[in-house]
Nucleic acid binder design. Structure first.
Lengths: 335, 335
DNA sequence: CTGTTAGCGCTTTCAC
DNA sequence: GTGAAAGCGCTAACAG
C-alpha cells in the first residue's frame, strides 16, 4: 500500500501487460472478461487509480471539469456550490483552481488554463479579466470582463440591481448618496456604476463626482473610499457600494467613526454573500443568485462539451433587493 | 494564440532546444543570460505555461497543494476559505478536488489521492473516512475518521461543544431532548453524541434511546429523524442536531407540522455555517472555527512539506455556543 | 485476446 | 552554454 500504485505495478501483479490493464480499467474492448475481472480485482486491491496527469496526456476525455477562480472568497465559494450540485450527477469530477501566484500581466486565468487546460474536459472561469484565452477546451465565463462575443457567459443584472438599490435609497428620502465603485475591468462593476448614475438622473439628482470613490472590491481601498466620503464637508446620508465586501467595509468605518448605521448613514451592498446576513447590523444588499450562476454555467458548459450549439450564449439573471438593517430614512437635517 | 503553446513551440520560436527552454523557464543554471531572456520573452508572448500534468511526471516540486473534499458544501467551503488565505503568501497554488464519482467502497479520498497525488506537493483531506492512505506526499486531515496515529489531524472540540449546547438547553428547563446523530464514520460525530449523553447524565436525566435518531448529516435522513422524534407519544421539547444541515432540517419539519420554533420546540445545531445565520428563525448553534481549521491545517502541512517534525500532530480547536433564535424555555406543560 | 511500440509534454543527466 | 536522449505513467494504434 506504500506510494501510489502505477499501471505497471498492476500489470506485474496480474501477470499481464500494461496495455491490457489500461484496456481493462477503461472498459475498452479486446480483453477477455476473465482477465478483465482479475485485473480489476487486483487494481482495486492495490488501490490503483490512473494518474490524471499521465492519462490526460494521451487521451482527450478525463471526466473532470475545472473551475478557475482568483481566490476562495465568498462570491466564488457560492458559485462553486452551485457548480458542484449542478455537476453532481454528470459523472464528472470538479477541480477548482486558485492561482495566487504570478499574478502579473499574464492574468491568472491564462496561466491556469495553460497549466491545466490539457487535463480538463471543460472549464468555467469566474470573473476573468483577460480577453483572449487559448481556445482548446469548452469554456464558459461567469461575470466576465467584456470579452469577445465568442465566449459563453453568465452574469446577473448589475444595472437593474443597482437601480433597485438606488431607488430604495431615494424613496427613503436620501438625496446625497455616495458610491464605492468596483473593479473597472469587470463589466458587472461598470454596470452597477451605470445603474447608480441612471437612478440619480431619473430622480433629478445632479451627479456629483466627489461622491464616487474607487473601492476596487478591495478591503483596503474600500475603507479609504469610505473615509474620504465621510470626510466630505457635506457628508452623504447614504452609501451604495459595488459589492458586499466594500459595503461591509463602509459600515465598519462609519461605526469606528462613531456614526450609527443606519441612523446616521444608510448602506447598501451588492451580492448578498453569506457574510452580509451575519454582519451587525445585517446588511441591506442586492442579491444576485450566485449558486444559480453556477448552475447556468454548468448547463452551458455541458452543452458545449456535448458538441452542441448554444441557443443563448449569454445569460443574465435577475437580481433583487434584500432589505435588512442598514437602511433607513435620513436623519433630519443637522447641518 | 490558438490551442495552448507547448515547450516545443517555444523552443522552435526561440531557435533553441526544448532542454534550454525548460532550464530557462525554471531558472536552472546552465543557460546564457541572454538566451534565457529571449526564451522568457518568447514564452510570455506565446502565453506559455508548463503543463502541470507533464511536469509533475518528471519533477517532484510543482508548487500546488491539493484539498480533497467530498463536495462543495458549506462546511468545506468555509474550510477552503481558511486554507486559501493561509496559503496566500506561500507561493503555492491551491487545487480543490471533489470526486462525486465512483464513491464505492474505495473511498473518494483514496481514489483522488491516487489520481492527483503525484501532481501535488502536499494535500489536505477534509472529513476523510478512509484509514490507510498511500503515503506518498505530506498529508493532513481535517475532521478525520479515527485514523492511524501517523496522520496529522486538525479538528474541533465536538465533545465540549455538544456539552455547551446541552447545558444551555437543560439550563433553559428542557428535560426531554432529542438528538439527531451524524455520520458514524467520523470521530467528530461520535464525540458530539458522547457530549449529548454525558450532559444528560450529569444533569441526572435518564438516557432514552427513543430520543436519538440517525441523521447521518444527510437532508433526507435528518428529516425522517425529525419526523420520528416529533411523532413520539411524548414529544421532545428540544432537539440537538449533530450539524447545522440536520438542525435546519429539523426546524423545517417542525414548522411544516405547524409547530413554532422556538415556542413549541427548541433546536440547536452544530458548525455555524453561514446558512445558519440566515435561516428563519436564525439558528442557535455551536460554532466551530471552520476557517481556522483550514489555517491550522496549512500550518501543519507547510511544516511537513518543509521536512519538519510536527510538534503537535493533532490539534483540537475550541467551540462555542452562538445563541440565536431557535432556543427558548419549554412551553408550560400541555400534555 | 494480448503484447509491442510509439509518443503525449516535460525535466534531467550527460555529452559535446 | 547547449542539445540529444531517456523516461515519468499512460493510451492508442498495430502486430501477432
Amino acid at each position: 500500500m506504500q506510494g501510489r500504485a502505477t499501471i505497471s505495478d498492476v500489470a506485474a501483479a496480474a501477470g499481464v501487460s500494461v496495455a491490457t490493464v489500461s484496456k481493462a480499467v477503461n472498459g475498452r474492448y479486446g480483453v477477455g472478461s476473465e482477465t478483465a475481472a482479475r485485473v480489476l480485482r487486483i487494481a482495486s486491491e492495490l488501490g490503483y487509480a490512473s494518474s490524471l496527469g499521465a492519462s490526460s496526456m494521451r487521451s482527450s476525455r478525463t471526466g473532470v471539469v475545472g473551475v478557475f477562480i482568483a481566490a476562495f472568497e465568498p462570491f466564488s465559494s457560492e458559485v462553486l456550490k452551485g457548480i458542484g450540485v449542478a455537476l453532481g450527477d454528470s459523472g464528472n469530477d470538479v477541480l477548482a483552481y486558485s492561482s495566487l501566484t504570478g499574478n502579473e500581466h499574464d492574468g491568472w486565468e491564462r496561466r491556469s488554463l495553460s497549466r491545466l487546460g490539457g487535463t480538463l474536459d471543460g472549464a468555467i472561469l469566474v470573473a476573468p479579466t483577460v480577453v483572449d484565452l487559448p481556445g482548446t477546451i469548452p469554456l464558459v465565463a461567469i461575470d466576465p470582463h467584456t470579452g469577445p462575443a465568442g465566449l459563453a457567459t453568465v452574469d446577473s443584472d448589475g444595472y437593474g440591481g443597482a437601480r433597485l438599490a438606488m431607488e430604495r435609497l431615494i424613496g427613503l428620502g436620501h438625496r446625497r448618496i455616495g458610491f464605492v465603485s468596483g473593479r473597472h475591468d469587470l463589466r458587472s462593476a461598470l454596470l452597477r456604476e451605470a445603474g447608480y448614475r441612471s437612478a440619480l438622473e431619473e430622480a433629478g439628482i445632479p451627479f456629483d463626482a466627489d461622491l464616487v470613490r474607487a473601492g476596487n472590491y478591495e478591503l483596503k481601498l474600500s475603507r479609504e473610499a469610505a473615509n474620504q466620503l465621510l470626510d466630505l464637508p457635506v457628508r452623504p446620508t447614504a452609501i451604495f457600494a459595488a459589492n458586499d465586501l466594500s459595503a461591509l467595509a463602509v459600515v465598519q468605518v462609519a461605526q469606528s467613526r462613531g456614526l450609527a448605521v443606519p441612523r446616521d448613514l444608510s448602506v447598501v451592498g451588492f451580492d448578498d454573500v453569506p457574510e452580509a446576513a451575519r454582519a451587525d447590523p445585517p446588511l441591506t444588499t442586492v442579491r444576485q443568485p450566485m449558486q444559480q450562476l453556477g448552475n447556468e454555467a454548468v448547463a452551458m458548459l455541458t452543452a458545449l462539451m456535448g458538441q452542441q450549439e448554444l441557443r443563448r450564449p449569454h445569460v443574465t439573471l435577475a437580481t433583487r433587493l434584500v432589505e435588512r438593517h442598514t437602511t433607513a430614512a435620513p436623519a433630519p437635517r443637522r447641518g
